[in-house]
């Protein structure tokens, strides 16, 4: 049996004295498209930080990559809102940041780095924007650029934090399609954090639902049930199939017919 790529073993996570997530156990296999969902403030980003190595578990274990092997290269796509937009970096400069670790301290980007940047820009279809200021782009364009930057580091896993937050419907669907195609064409491990249930219901293969006293892992069909979501959000929630897609709706299922 192939060893798990990421494994949480009775891990409790938090900051300072505050425990945010208590005693969770689950695995993510290499090449999986995995979702982390839950309400705002439920601890999704804390789990993400533990995966990325930014925080250590307070108890239990978090294992990432093969034991004793080199550290896993993550391509991280942060929430767009946390970026600093005072200086007008061009799209090209932003994507090049993804190469900085490979380039090394003091050294300047070379021809190979520029070629990789061009390839990544083309991959996410934003090559025409390369000289535009990043801060002037639309939400969907910014997200594509940040995905290009994550790809520029040649990652083993792509980690996206709320990638469709605040986007209009076409941009949202387009970004989800792009992430899906990146996963399909290279079997890259993809971990997506979101509070938008529809995003994960129709795209990921497996997911974890996170809330303070609730943690469940499984396929969307197993986990995203009306009973689970009603308990999680403490309001009636229905999960319906509409034109082949799973839709999460407020209210009980009888009220929707």
């Amino acid at each position: 049996m192939e060893p798990s790529f990421i494994e949480f073993d009775h891990a409790s996570l938090g900051y300072g004295r505050k425990v945010v997530v208590r005693d969770i156990s689950f695995v993510i296999q290499r090449g999986e498209y995995f979702g982390l969902v839950g309400p705002n403030g439920s601890g999704k980003t804390t789990i993400l930080r533990a995966i990325l190595g930014s925080i250590r578990p307070r108890s239990g274990q978090v294992r990432v990559g093969p034991t004793g092997g080199p550290p896993v290269r993550f391509g991280y796509v942060p929430q767009r809102e946390i970026l600093d937009y005072v200086l007008p970096y061009t799209v090209q400069q932003v994507v090049m940041m993804g190469r900085y670790r490979q380039i090394g301290l003091i050294r300047r980007p070379g021809k190979v780095d520029r070629e990789i940047i061009q390839e990544c820009l083309e991959h996410v279809a934003v090559q025409d924007l390369r000289d535009r200021p990043f801060k002037d782009l639309s939400g969907g364009q910014k997200q594509r650029v940040l995905i290009a930057r994550a790809l520029a580091s040649r990652p083993e896993a792509l980690v996206l934090d709320e990638p469709t937050n605040g986007m209009d419907l076409p941009s949202r669907l387009s970004i989800l399609e792009l992430i899906g195609s990146l996963h399909a064409e290279s079997s890259m491990t993809v971990i997506m954090v979101t509070h938008l249930l529809d995003d994960v219901a129709n795209h990921v293969k497996r997911l974890a639902v996170v809330e303070r006293n609730f943690f469940q892992v499984g396929s969307p069909e197993e986990v995203l049930t009306g009973a689970n979501l009603s308990a999680l959000y403490q309001i009636p929630v229905a999960v319906e199939r509409v034109r082949g897609r799973t839709v999460v709706l407020p209210g009980d299922s009888h009220a929707t017919h």
């Binding site: 190595g53 993550f74 942060p78 946390i82 600093d84 970096y89 932003v94 940041m97 301290l105 580091s153």
Partner: peptide, 22 residues
């Protein structure tokens, strides 16, 4: 000037820089 790119990266996006080992 020697660490121009590192300072820019950490100011623009400290979270992602941290995931790359900075």
């Amino acid at each position: 000037l020697l660490f121009f790119k590192e300072f820019n990266y950490v100011i623009f996006d400290p979270d992602t820089a941290a995931t790359q080992g900075y």
